[in-house]
Simulated scan of single mutants.
Amino acid sequence: MFKVLILLTCLALGLALGPQLAGNKGYVLIAFDSYTVEMSVTSALFVSFICFCILLFTIWLLRWLWLSFSRSTNWWGDRRKQKAISHTQQGMLAMMRGDYQHAEKLVSKAATYSSTPALNYLTAAEAAQEQGQDKKRDQYLEQATRMTNNDSAVLITQARLQIKQQNFSAALNSIEQLPAESRKQAPVRRMLLQILPELDQWQAYVELLPIAYKAQLLEDSHYQVELSRSYQALFLELANTQGADKVAAYWNAMPRKQKKSMTIAAAACQALVLSGDSAAAYQLLGDLLNKHHDPELLAVAAKLQLSDPYPLLQQLKGLLRKSPNNAALLNLIAQLYLQQQQWPEAKDYFEQSINIVASRESYQGLAESYRQLEEPQQAMDYYRQALTM
């Protein structure tokens, strides 16, 4: 609009001044080096006007050409992006169908013009691994890393793929490169729950389990089983490598809240028994049994191999006077008598245990007692009842 006003102004001036200049044309001389140009003022103004119009036309033409080029470039760019989006979507669907070769081809081809190239390379890496092409997988992961500068998504995907290959050491290394906040994410903790036991990193595992349970990553029953397994492995490792004293020291240094868990306490005693130090196990177990008649503790006590079980028997009988209807306690006393080949006493306690709660172990122990007492018919009857439990 501004340019049009300039043109109209020039025309108006020409119309106004034209008649006056016609009578007095004036004189214009332009000299440059050895060249001279002579013309009237009217001609000079006319030439200037024509040059100005040519300049405006040239600017308009260049602008039109630039806009046309830009629109063409944008059109091709948009077309490539749309094609990349389409290939990426098709590749994701192929991954879900299990067509990994087609999926890899589509997502890797679309990565160059994709708005999220790292996602394409990560998907291609997973597809390559599913085809057993580890070298190509590593190349895709390297490309994804360059795109995101070690982004957490790349490291997490890399760890997940390494777990699938059961390369747990490499997976743990990938996770350790994550920022502290990323390591708190639920998917990362789930991976650690798989990795740490495989690498026998029991200390880290027992520290992770309560956190994972609180975050509802484990069911209660699974949590209790894993807690017992992990502490048993940890205590057994300490007993085998550093001796029973180290187990006792570790137990004493544990928080009071953990010591209240009979699962953990039983694991400590079980580890000492498995390491062949039943005396140390009884030293720890004896104090616990005075406070708790827990079935897990009693089950560990039944595995003790004591040179002199008399102190344990006396302790258990003292506990029995306080809890006369404790079937597990009666069964344990009977088992100790059975180990000492005191068949009549073992028979009596097994019978008392069965009268309260019948179990396969009690029937088997009672059958063995009758067999040793040379009453084969009774022994056969109780063996049959044990098989029906």
Rank of each mutant, 00 (worst) to 15 (best):
L13N: 07
D348F: 01
V225L: 11
S323I: 05
S48T: 14
V225I: 05
P309F: 01
R146W: 07
H87W: 11
Y27C: 07
N331S: 10
A280R: 00
A125N: 06
A379M: 00
G276Q: 01
A379P: 00
I59H: 04
S115P: 08
I175V: 11
A110H: 07
Q139F: 08
A16I: 15
S275K: 02
L5W: 13
M254T: 02
L208F: 10
L8F: 10
Q377W: 02
W75L: 05
E368I: 00
S369P: 03
Y35M: 09
A268R: 01
Q385M: 03
N326A: 05
E176N: 13
L373R: 00
S108L: 14
L338I: 03
R256D: 03
L11R: 08
Y27D: 06
A125I: 10
L338C: 00
L119I: 12
S70L: 12
K322F: 04
Q162T: 07
Y382H: 05
R160V: 11
L284I: 01
L65H: 07
Q283Y: 05
A128R: 06
A328R: 04
I354P: 01
L178W: 09
Q133P: 06
P311D: 04
L336V: 11
L62N: 12
T112I: 15
S307A: 09
K81H: 15
A265C: 06
G18M: 07
A302S: 05
F52E: 08
I163L: 09
P295N: 00
L61W: 11
L45K: 09
W60E: 14
L209D: 02
L238V: 00
Y205K: 02
T112C: 09
E361P: 00
Q377A: 10
K25Y: 07
T73W: 13
S72K: 15
K260W: 08
L304A: 01
G77H: 15
A249P: 01
G243S: 06
F2G: 03
G132F: 10
P19M: 12
P117W: 13
Q216V: 04
W60V: 09
S362C: 05
I333H: 05
D308C: 08
S362N: 03
K81I: 15
S34I: 13
A159T: 10
C53Q: 12
S68Q: 15
S114N: 13
A215H: 10
L208K: 03
K135D: 14
Q131T: 13
L217C: 02
Y100K: 04
L56C: 07
F69R: 13
E176K: 13
M262D: 00
L373M: 09
L192F: 03
S86F: 13
G365W: 02
W66R: 12
E237G: 06
Q90T: 08
N252A: 12
E219N: 05
Q342P: 08
Q185A: 13
Q342W: 05
Q315I: 01
L196N: 03
A215D: 09
L297D: 02
A44D: 07
L217S: 02
Y27E: 09
I163C: 11
W202C: 03
L15H: 05
I156F: 06
Y113W: 14
Y100Q: 10
Q89S: 15
M96V: 15
L55G: 14
F57W: 11
L338A: 04
L373Q: 06
W75N: 04
L387V: 11
Q232R: 14
W251V: 08
